[in-house]
């Protein structure tokens, strides 16, 4: 990729992280362009989740630099808050707030962080629910929805903060097969909108179709990065080949 420096919305330079003695991220350096769609894959335990969680400080890195939309992630709480306002995150387990209705889940951020009026926030929430295809569920509680519907609410909740970057950590892994498509469809539609997306996923069909670039993680390092056609047609690294043969012939 040949993106000029100012176009990079995420810049990681030699990022390291340890859990105790365990070296999880071993020098991650990567630049992600504005509006780029990046898919991250790799074997279990390779540090994919940990990496995208360092990007909004749910985990803190111990060495190296992370710059998100021109703001460096440090212990400065103001920077952390600013970056979290710019980034939405969707979790494998949805993590919807069970004591709030679908509508309240979505308006919580806009009202308390963006200081939006309640009625405006509700309007925004309704339009997002239209967009993810479940406006009729607005007044239910999360536990009354199917997994696929819950994940779509979670996407709407993240979008309600009008983020520039969306982080997805295996958004379809906890779903039954028949619900995976409805979530991926929403993500495909979102990809058209020009937002920057980082998606940890094993859905290689989605990666092939949507990704500008695929990062392959193994043992805390980016072993290979390439556009999808190259990545699938001619993987360079042995470990990538092994991974692909396992996941594609499964």
């Amino acid at each position: 990729m040949n993106v000029s420096q100012s176009d990079d919305i995420i810049i990681c330079e030699d990022v390291h992280k340890w859990f105790g003695d365990f070296h999880v991220l071993k020098g991650i350096s990567v630049r992600i362009g504005r509006g780029e769609k990046v898919v991250i894959c790799g074997p279990s335990g390779s540090g994919k989740s940990t990496f995208i969680r360092t990007l909004n400080r749910l985990e803190h890195h111990q060495r190296g630099r992370i710059i998100v939309d021109g703001i460096e992630l440090t212990d400065d709480l103001k920077n952390i808050e600013a970056i979290r306002r710019e980034t939405g995150m969707v979790f494998q387990q949805f993590n919807l707030f069970p004591h709030l209705t679908v509508l309240q889940n979505i308006t919580l951020g806009p009202i308390w962080v963006r200081k939006m009026k309640k009625s405006e926030a509700a309007e925004l929430a309704m339009s997002l629910l239209e967009r993810v295809g479940i406006p009729e569920q607005a007044h239910k509680y999360p536990s009354q929805l199917s997994g696929g519907q819950q994940q779509r609410v979670a996407i709407a909740r993240a979008l309600a903060m009008q983020p520039k970057i969306m982080l997805f950590d295996e958004p379809t892994s906890a779903l039954d097969p028949e619900m995976i498509k409805e979530v991926l469809d929403v993500m495909r539609e979102l990809a058209q909108s020009g937002i920057t997306m980082l998606v940890v996923t094993h859905e290689m069909g989605f990666a092939r179709e949507v990704a500008d670039r695929i990062l392959f993680f193994d043992q805390g390092q980016i072993v290979e990065e390439a556009p999808p056609h190259e990545f699938f047609a001619a993987p360079k690294h042995e470990r990538t080949k092994l991974f692909l043969s396992q996941i594609l012939h499964h």
Binding site: N56, F91, A158
Partner: peptide
């Protein structure tokens, strides 16, 4: 984590 990710203090 979900609440922090939204930017809540």
């Amino acid at each position: 984590e979900a609440a922090l990710a939204l930017g809540l203090r």
